[in-house]
Structures are given as C-alpha cells and as structure tokens.
Amino acid sequence: MNADASLRRRILVTLGVIVLFRLGQSLPTPHLTARAPEDDHPLRWILDLATGGGLATLPVFAFGVLPSLVALPVLRTLIVLIPRLAALRTEGEAGARALLRYQRRLTVVLGLPGAIAVVTFRGLEVLHSVVAVACLTAGAALVLRLTEVITDRGFGDGVRILLLAQVLAVLPAEFLRLYGTKGWAAVVVMAVVALSIAVLTVVLAQGQRRVPVQYAKRMIGVRAYGGAPTYIPLRFPQANSPAVLAAALLSLPSLWPGVGWLGDEGNPWRIAVYFVLVCAFAFIRAALSQDMDKVAGELVRVGGFVPGIRPGPWTAEYLDYVNRRVIAFGALCSGVVALIPAIGLALLDVNPRLPFAGVALLVVLVFLVSVTLDTARQFDALRLRKEYGPFLR
C-alpha cells in the first residue's frame, strides 16, 4: 500500500469510528428512559462534557470514553501498589500486552458498577435490569475497542480523539444558550477568549530553548564518528492541574467569614490571587518534573558537553539556571492563559451553571488545542514519511 493510500485509509478509519461512536451515543438502551438533570443543575455541564451528553439520554454508549479515560490512571496507581504489575513493566513487549489486557478488564469493571447504579435508580424489573446493565457494560467495552482502532489504524490517541468528539458535540449547545442570554457580545468575547487561549497554548507547546551540545569524536578503525553539533531542547511542561488546584484552594476560604469575596469569580482581588497561585503552582510543578543532574550525567555518559561549560556538576548548574528561566516564563504565560477565561466570564457577568466555570472552560480549550496539535504532528510525520520514504529504502 503506497503512502497516499495509507494516509487516506487512516483518515477514513478515524472519521468512520467517530461516526460509529456518535451513533452509539444516539442509540437508546432497552428499557431505559432518560431523566436528565434540570438545565440549570450544577452538575449538568460537567456530566455532558465527560459523557458527551450520554447520561442525559442514556444511550448504549451512555458513559462515553469515561471508563477508558479513568482506567489508565487507576492502572498506573495499581502498578505502584502491586509489585507483580510493576514487574510487568520491565518485561518488554510481553509485559506491555499483559498490562493492556488488565486495562481492558479494568475498563469493563469500571463500566459495570456505573451501569448498575444507573439501572438501580430506575426501578426496573429484574429481567429488564439485567438487559440494561448488559447493554451499558457492553457499550463501555465496545467504546474501548473503538479507541484502540483509532490508536492502531487512525490518527492520534483514540481516547483523546473520541473525548474531543464528545466535547465538540456538547459545546455548540452551550454557546447557543450563552448567545440566547447575552446576545452577540457573548459570541465576540468567547471568540476572543478561545482564539487567545489557542494561540498562547500553541506558543507554549511549540516553544523551546535550545542549549547547544557538542559530542567528542571517536575513532573506530580508520573512520571518525561523532563530533556533530546538536542541542538540548528545554521546554515548559504544560498541564491544567495548576489552574484546577488554584481554583480548588480558592474555594475553601470562601466558606470562612470575612473573606467571602474569594467566592466571587468576578472579583478583581480574587482574580489577582488566582493568577499568582497558578503561576506559583505551574513553576513548582515544572521545576519538580525536570532533573538537570540526570541530563548532565547522560551527556557525560555519551561523551557530550555544552561548549564553554565544564562537564558534570558545572553543566548541571548551567542547565538548571537556563531551565529556571524557561519555566519562569512558562509559568507566567500559564497564569495569563488561566486569566483569559476568568476575565472573559467576568466581563459577560455570567452566572455559571458549573462552579469554576473559568477553569472548566480553560481545561476544555487547552485540551482541544493539545489534541489538535498531537494529531497534526502525527499527520505531518506520515506526510514526511511519504515524501522521503523512497530515499530511505
């Protein structure tokens, strides 16, 4: 199969799986009738985002990719706690296949209690309950299989692609609701918010500080190898956790007397405190996730060095100095990105259905941009393979 046919097949597979997934989220479950929360219920929007509106209509794919999304972090926690699972990570391909089987089983196990909980509150007959639980659990397992098909034969990570499809299916209704209450001003403000977050997220994701590295030449026989200059890319690791953690901390003092302004998301002082907390948490998280001593030790092991800097601890100190400046700038940008939806919602004077609406909007928009970037990178890699494949044979 040539490269053009491979690209076309991957695109068609991805689109076909998304269509099947959305059809499954429209197919009603036997013997179940939906009793969705009220439109202004505080949990309605977050449930719609997590399940693509599935818990509002109770289709066969009522849980969406939620069981598959939760199964991976649960499995990672179990790997830390259970030595047998930790040993599988060191067994290469065989261990990876075994962990994949455990992840599939865990997805079904997570879908089963959710199906039982949904059916229990419906008061169905025993036979009808069994049928409904079986359909919902089978739907969770089938969604897992659809994510694997996209990962193996389509573009991007299957769970993230289908989660993106869920979010895009819910957002238009939310924007229409906002337009119905605030008019065109809401459309303009939300467009500016979305565009600003997208641009800054792309800049942070693509930006890097290149530290030059030179490798010593090695003589093997009569030929010299190595010596080519290269670089170490220092990036700012992006994450939504600082904004979520900052919003969670700000919610606690709002219950105390005298600091009720922290509970008002449009209060300027609250926004300022929120910005400082996001910057601090982003800086701490990035600093803890990167070990420059390890990078410097790896350079010594392979015979590399930074021009003008002595190898070993001196290189680690230099890299740490440069990296702190990178993550300081990235943390400041993260704070600015976190401020954009908060200021936008404050300008609209929106009474959100969901607490921390600014954080929720930020997480959704950053997720959309990150999934788009990952998919574009994979598409670009396949395109380059098509162009330069004949020269590599």
Rank of each mutant, 00 (worst) to 15 (best):
L339P: 01
L339Q: 10
V359C: 07
I343T: 05
G358V: 02
L361E: 00
P352M: 06
L382I: 09
F379G: 03
A346S: 15
L373Y: 06
A360W: 08
G330K: 13
F356A: 13
S334Y: 06
V366G: 01
G358E: 11
Q378V: 13
V322C: 03
F356M: 12
A328I: 05
V337P: 03
A346K: 06
V337G: 05
F356D: 14
F329P: 00
S370F: 11
Q378W: 05
G335R: 00
D349P: 01
P341T: 05
L332A: 13
F367W: 04
L373D: 07
S334P: 02
Q378D: 14
L347H: 10
S370D: 15
R325L: 14
A360S: 11
D380A: 15
D320N: 13
F356V: 05
D349V: 12
Y321A: 13
V369A: 04
P341R: 05
L345E: 05
V359H: 00
G358H: 11
F379L: 12
N351L: 14
R325G: 13
V364K: 00
R377N: 11
L382P: 00
V326M: 01
V363F: 03
Y321I: 04
I327R: 14
A338V: 04
R324N: 08
G358F: 01
R383G: 10
F329E: 09
L348P: 01
A360P: 00
V371I: 15
D349C: 07
V363H: 03
L365I: 12
D349A: 15
V326W: 01
S334G: 05
R353S: 13
L361T: 07
V359K: 00
L365D: 00
F329A: 13
R324Q: 10
V369E: 01
L368W: 03
I340D: 05
L347F: 15
V336E: 07
A376T: 05
V350I: 15
A331T: 03
L347I: 14
I343M: 12
D349L: 08
V369T: 11
R325S: 09
L332N: 00
